[in-house]
Each structure stands twice: as C-alpha cells, then as structure tokens.
Design a protein around this nucleic acid. Structure first.
Lengths: 207, 207
DNA sequence: GCATTTTATTACCTTACGGTATAATAATCA
DNA sequence: TGATTATTATACCGTAAGGTAATAAAATGC
C-alpha cells in the first residue's frame, strides 16, 4: 500500500483535490448544518462546478456523509484516543479538555457537527438527523465502556452506574458544544469541563 | 382589564383562535426548527390558509418570534420561578429537575426550542439564530444573578466564580436538551441533573 | 336594503432549491 | 492522427420555498 499506484488515468484529469474539496465541504456543513448548507454555497466554496460535485460525491446526502466521516476521523479522533489514558479519570479529563479546544478552535467552525448538523430539521433531513444521533450514541458508548473497564480494574466503585455517568459526561460535552456555537471561549469551556469533573466518584472499598 | 371588551367587530369573524394557532405553530417550530418548518406544513397544522396566517402574524420570522415568546412565558417559565427558591442550591436543583421533565414531556416536542430552533443555519435564519443565542444568554444570566445573591447572603463562598458556575449549569441543561432530542427519558435526564449537582461548592468561612 | 369592513379562498408570483442533460475540453491508448 | 475516456462548463429541469394580488364570503353600521 506504500507504493502509490501511478497508472495513468484515461480521461481528462480532475481540476481539484478530492480530499481538499471534502475538507471544504465539511467546513460548510459544520457551520451551516445539513439543511442550512445549500449546494450553491458548496459549489462556490469548493470552487467546483455542480455536476463535478455530483460526479465525485454522489448527491448532497452522500457528500455530507463523506464529510462526516472525515470529521470523525480528523477533528474528533481525540475522543477515542482519550479513552486510552491510564485511568478513567484521566480519560475523561482529556476528553473534555480536548473538546474545549476543538469546539473553539480558530481554524474551524465553532461547535460540534454531530450536535448542530441536524439537531432538528425538516422531513428531508431525517436520515442525517438519525445518523448524527447514532454517532452521538456511539461516543457515549465508548465513554461507558471506558468506565466499565475502570470498574473491573477497581479504579471505580463496583456500584457505579457507568451508563448514567457516561450520559452525564456526554451531556456536558454537548452542552459545551452549544456554548461554543454561541461564542464561548476555550477558557470558558475549560472551566465548564473542570466543574464537571469536580464530583468524580471516589473509590470505595468493594464489599 | 377584567371586563372583556365586547364591542362587536366590524368585518367577517375569524375562523380560528389566535392563541391556539400560535400554540400549534410553536409545536411545529419546536419539532422542526426555524428552517425545517415550512409555511406549507404550518398552514396544514394550524388549519389556516396562508394569507390568513400572514394577515394575523406578519411573516415566518414574526410568527416564530411570537411562538418563541409564548414558549418563554409557558413551557420555560419554570426557569425564572426556580430562581426564587430559598437557597441557591434548591434553585439549581429545581431548575435542572424541571428541565428534565420539560425536555421529555409527552405532550410537547422533545428538547428545547432555544437550543434546537436554529443552532446552525443558512444566511436567512441568522437573526433568529442570534435571538435564540441571546435568550440562552439571558437564562444563563438569571442563574448567575441567583448565585451572586447567594454569595452576598453567605450561602456560597465569596471567591466562587458565579459566572463560571452559571455557565456550567447552563451547559448541563443544554446538553440535556440535546440528549432529550435524541430520545433520552426523563429518568435519564434526571440522573444527569443529579450528577451535575454532586459537586456543589461547600461554603468555606470567608477570610 | 346597501355600503363598509374584515376575513377566507383561490390562484399566482419570484426566487431558490437539489439535481441533470448536453456539449466542450483535455488527457491516454492505438 | 484518430478513437476513447473522463472531467469540465453551460444551461436547464421540476419542485418547493416564502410571500401576495384579487376576489368571494360573512359579519356590522346605517
């Protein structure tokens, strides 16, 4: 896989970089939401004509899904990485701290695509809405699993409700997303994160 | 003001109740968001013809603003009421507890209009987006003031950062809104609220 | 009764939406 | 050079968006 396939392509060469275009599309969807992003704006930002976009990415929905994929693998990759910290406590700290930075990063739109991409919408965006909800659930789930793991390792008390705690952490992060959308600074988001973790459950001796 | 003005009106009488119609419009906006709610759907749900809606409420934006007003005075009135509890702690508890109930109430759309009404949007909804952000800030502000009040009454420590704590409480409630939108039950929302308040700042003797 | 006022109804306007047919262009293959 | 292939560019499609003109209908005032 390291040796690039250099077989010359047959037809007229593409004028744009596929990945760059997807990155730009991601930024538009991120800022506007799925419904709020029009194909006209997308063509202007990507600098690609409409038929070329459709040829390269399918339709608006597929373009969004591919942009979302890029989003999950890029700006949101820290979430899964955070779960690999040596303790659950550190994992949660890193998750919320990196969230604060990502949600207010100067080079990207504010907030979280999974939250503001299609929180409520018309009938035509229902599938996207479901996809985003599913992704939010997935991230809540990896948090829950990290907490469960900490329970088996006796880092956290056995009677801890890890599902509830994971929901709480997720909710805080999603609330931070809303705050970021309306302009909260990284420092403000960080102080939310800090307050959210003050009540970390102490380990009590099991039985 | 108690004696109803019964002066007969001159023209053809209205076929619909103004306030009922506004309530229905509120539910559509609440479920769909500002952009996701089409005038066509609104006419169908309200059971009123298009020109009658425009005559009664102005245009789509004004209709939304009036529906939002009704929302703030109705389903969200608990927020301001909660701030009148005898202690700040009780105020915050009541705020989040009532939020859990309101955000998952069976008779209304799930989630919060202030959050999902226009979190991200196209250029045409920018003013509504700003209005909703402003309302969220307002609610954060009444929380902050309640905390400040508790500081002057020595219920809370003098060095407490009430702005940060208010932001945290707001973020939790907004996160609960997101969770509610994707189907969280009242019990699940309540457990988020409970976890959020575990870390309530203890009073330390001042100076 | 008749004029007046207000609403309801029908039909329509302009604009923007997502999506495409068609043809021109630029490369490789033979 | 010519045939082939894939991507550009222009122009357009049908539909739905928000909003309105024009007219019919139902009440009051005289």
């Amino acid at each position: 896989m390291a040796t690039a396939e250099l077989k010359k392509q047959r037809g007229r060469p593409s004028n744009f970089d596929h990945d760059e275009a997807l990155e730009k599309a991601l930024h538009v969807f991120w800022k506007r939401g799925y419904e709020g992003a029009s194909m006209t704006e997308l063509t202007k930002v990507l600098g690609i004509n409409r038929p070329s976009i459709y040829a390269a990415f399918g339709n608006k929905e597929e373009l969004f899904r591919k942009a979302l994929e890029k989003y999950l693998k890029g700006p949101v990759a820290y979430a899964a990485e955070a779960m690999q910290q040596p303790t659950a406590r550190l994992s949660m700290e890193m998750f919320l701290t990196k969230s604060a930075a990502a949600l207010s990063s100067p080079g990207t739109p504010r907030g979280c695509l999974m939250v503001q991409g299609a929180l409520s919408c018309g009938p035509g965006a229902k599938l996207i809405q479901q996809e985003l909800a599913s992704q939010r659930r997935y991230h809540e789930e990896i948090i829950r699993k990290r907490l469960e793991q900490a329970k088996t390792l006796a880092e956290l008390p056995q009677d801890l409700n890890s599902a509830a705690l994971a929901k709480y952490i997720s909710a805080v992060q999603q609330g931070m997303s809303v705050q970021a959308t309306s302009g909260a600074s990284e420092a403000e988001l960080l102080s939310i994160a800090e307050l959210a973790l003050r009540n970390w459950p102490e380990k009590r001796p099991s039985s």
